[in-house]
Nucleic acid binder design. Structure first.
Lengths: 250, 250
DNA sequence: CAGTGGTCTAGACCACGAC
DNA sequence: TCGTGGTCTAGACCACTGG
C-alpha cells in the first residue's frame, strides 16, 4: 500500500477525533491557517482535507467567523413502509414522520408553504398530466431538534386541489391530507416509491444547511386511487444521518 | 443573484455540453492545461470545475494519458418490490435483477466469489448473531453491458451454510438460493430493507470504476423465516444511474 | 517519451458576520 | 473590526500509461 496523500492523512486524523467522540457535535474545528502553520503545510492542503470531511457530511462549511463545526450525525430511522402500523398511522391522521421522530425521543417541527407550479417532465410522468400543466404543491421544511432535517414537497393535480381547498391552505391539516382525501372520495389503494440519490443542488444545500455536493436521497412517493395517481410526494433526505426502512411480507 | 464563481460557471458550461448530448458517453474532455490556457484562468480553477462534475458522476477521473471521459449515465430501473410479480420471480428462481436488466434491453452478467468473514456490529445486528461470529458470504460483482454496475454481497449464518453447502460453492445456483433454502425448510416469510446513502469508499469506487466520493446507495435486505433472520444482502448501487422502485398496496 | 491527472506550495483579495 | 472561509493565481514535481 502506497503512502496516502498529505490531505488524506490529515483528514483521517481529524476524522478520528470526530468519530472517537473527542470532538462532539458543535465542536469548533481549527481554522485553516492555524492548522496549516502548525503542520508546516500549505493552507490549500488543509482545505482539501476539510473538503473531504465536508463531502462526508462530518462537518459544516460555515463561511464566517464562526468557522467550521462538527455536525450532529445521530442517525434518524424513518419507516417508509411498516407492515403492522400502516392502518394505525393512516387512520390516526398524524404525520408518520412525526411519529417516527417522537419514537426516537427527538422533537419534530415543520414549516408549510403552498403554491402552484407548472409540471416538468418528471412531475408530468408521476401525476399523468401534460407537461406544463399547473399543479398544486404543499412544501414542507421539516426540522428535528430545531435544525433543518429534510424537505418534503407534495404535488396534487389541480382539479383535486380545487375540490379540496384545504390542500392550498398553508395550515396544518390536523387529520392529515390522506384521510381528508379519502373522506372526499379519493381513497388511495396503492402507492409506489421511486428512489434516486445524487449530490444536493445548491438550493437544497442552502435550505438544509449542508455543504455543496453532500449526497441526498430523493424519495418520490406516488399515491394512486383505483383510477389514477392523485399525489406525488418528493422528500429530500440528507445522507449519512438517515436510514430509510421498508418492511414487507413475502 | 450574485455572479457565480468562475469554476461553477465553467462546470455549468461543460455540464451543458454533456447533458445536451453534444459530448456523448466516452467523449474525451479537454486537458486541464489546455482549458486553462484557452480561458486565461488558472489550472486549479479548471480542476475545481472538473471536480464538481466528477462528484456529480458525469465524468471519469482517469489519471493517465487517456484523460477524462464522459460517463455513460443511462438510468437503470430496479424493482426492489413489485406487488404483482413477487410470486413469479421467487418461484422462477431467476435473479430478479437479471430480469429487470433484460426488460430494459441491456445485458447482465455477474462474477461470484464466496468466503467466510467475522461479523461486524452491523452484520451481527442484521443476522442476530454475536459480534465476531463467522458468517458465510456470497459476493457478486454484477455488470451491465460489460461494465461494472453494482456490488451485491449476501451473508448467511454459518449453521445454515453448513446445512446447505451450495451457499459456499462459487457457482451459480440455477434455481436461486431463496428457492433452495425454502426446499430445505427455510422459507422466508418477510423481509426488511434498510437504505443508507453516502460517498463510495475507495475500495468500492475502485471495484465499480467510480470517482472517489461518488454517492452510492447501500440497500440492506434482511430475510426472515418465521423464527429468525436467515440472510442479509448488501447491495451497493452507484448514484445517478439507478432508480430503485418499491410498489406497495395501502 | 511525452501527455495527463494528482498533489503541493506560497502567496493574494474578497465577503460575511460574530464580537 | 477583524477572523474566517471562499476563491483564484502561477507556478512546481511526481506517477502513470498510451503510442
Amino acid at each position: 500500500m502506497a503512502e496516502q496523500p498529505l490531505y488524506v492523512q490529515l483528514a483521517d486524523e481529524l476524522r478520528q477525533n470526530i468519530s472517537s467522540g473527542e470532538w462532539g457535535p458543535g465542536h469548533k474545528l481549527p481554522p485553516e491557517r492555524e492548522l496549516a502553520e502548525d503542520r508546516k503545510i500549505s493552507r490549500n492542503t488543509v482545505i482539501k482535507a476539510y473538503d473531504l470531511l465536508l463531502h462526508e457530511g462530518l462537518i459544516t462549511s460555515g463561511n464566517t467567523r464562526a468557522g467550521r463545526r462538527v455536525r450532529d450525525r445521530r442517525t434518524l430511522y424513518v419507516y417508509a413502509s411498516k407492515t403492522e402500523q400502516v392502518d394505525r398511522r393512516i387512520t390516526s391522521g398524524v404525520d408518520a414522520w412525526v411519529t417516527d421522530v417522537a419514537e426516537q425521543n427527538r422533537s419534530a417541527g415543520q414549516v408549510i408553504d403552498v403554491g402552484v407550479v407548472n409540471a416538468d417532465e418528471d412531475l408530468a410522468d408521476w401525476l399523468q398530466v401534460p407537461v406544463g400543466e399547473p399543479v398544486a404543491v404543499r412544501r414542507r421544511l421539516r426540522s428535528v431538534d430545531g435544525l433543518p432535517d429534510n424537505l418534503c414537497d407534495t404535488y396534487y393535480p389541480m382539479d383535486l386541489a380545487r375540490e379540496i381547498p384545504e390542500i392550498l391552505n398553508p395550515a396544518d391539516v390536523q387529520q392529515g391530507v390522506i384521510a381528508l382525501m379519502a373522506e372526499r372520495g379519493y381513497r388511495q389503494v396503492r402507492y409506489e416509491d421511486r428512489l434516486r440519490w445524487s449530490p444536493a443542488t445548491p438550493d437544497e444545500a442552502a435550505k438544509l444547511g449542508l455543504g455543496p455536493g453532500i449526497a441526498v436521497l430523493r424519495q418520490i412517493r406516488i399515491g394512486h386511487t383505483e383510477e389514477r395517481p392523485v399525489k406525488a410526494t418528493v422528500t429530500i433526505w440528507p445522507g449519512d444521518t438517515h436510514e430509510l426502512r421498508y418492511e414487507m411480507s413475502a
